[in-house]
Design a binder for these strands. Sequence first.
DNA 1: CTTGACCCTGTACCATACTACAGGCACGAG
DNA 2: CTCGTGCCTGTAGTATGGTACAGGGTCAAG
Lengths: 135, 135
Amino acid sequence: MVYLKRGELAKATDTGIETIRYYESTGLIHKAERNDKGYRLFPPDTVKAIRFIRSCQDLGFTLKEITLLQNLKIEPDQQCGQVKESVDIKINELDKKIRALTMMRKALVTMSDMCIPEASNRSCHFLELLEEVIS
Amino acid sequence: MVYLKRGELAKATDTGIETIRYYESTGLIHKAERNDKGYRLFPPDTVKAIRFIRSCQDLGFTLKEITLLQNLKIEPDQQCGQVKESVDIKINELDKKIRALTMMRKALVTMSDMCIPEASNRSCHFLELLEEVIS
DNA sequence: CTTGACCCTGTACCATACTACAGGCACGAG
DNA sequence: CTCGTGCCTGTAGTATGGTACAGGGTCAAG
């Protein structure tokens, strides 16, 4: 059978078995079908869905936001403009986040570069550096 | 007096007044001195400290991580190498995060571009698009 | 000298995102 | 046929990051 039981899905996605139930209960993944004994049977693409969820979480999205992302689709009908608007907002947010992270990265690189064993006895205070880079 | 009371600090940083007490209790900001009546008196640079905390949170750092960031200082002593190592790890993490966000941004831009009224009757699902853009 | 805005403490509560039982049925290996 | 997993349900507990009182003192303006 191509279907996965809960434990198999958990292993395949390196996720806690209870987490799967939690995701199902919140609607983050589709309700699984059940066999005659009540065991959950997940279609194999649930693996992808869960990997997507975990990746998004790593990027700082909440489960609520991830639900929105999952539902994001543009259909060329009268509602297109609305969806486009929310997509554009999301793009702006991402831009801000990317810029900020890039600045922080720069601060860290500067720090790392300053840290050469032979370097003179200057000391580096991260916060001051970061403030400089950010502002 | 240059010192700020709790409410003043809250206003200056656009933060809940109780949040300030919470940050103080967790050691995220220094314990304020008190006047003779027990009122907290915060030195003015606490404003900066709290802004720093909020910015870092926006970037997806936890309060625990922010504490670590605050303590990150490189002093040219024997521990320099160690600190450099952890800084470099953090840089790698940021790189990954920035790349992933950039890809996600690309997917959204593609979506947004597809949404032109005159465009044909194709419809666009974010997840599929993201997979395309990523791979 | 009272009224309202502020501050104090302790404690309780909230949402999010899990995580851990307890009690019970299912199933395959030995 | 039993032993060890694995699955089921419901419910309770955890950590994080706040948020909201209650009950009481402080302070300055009118």
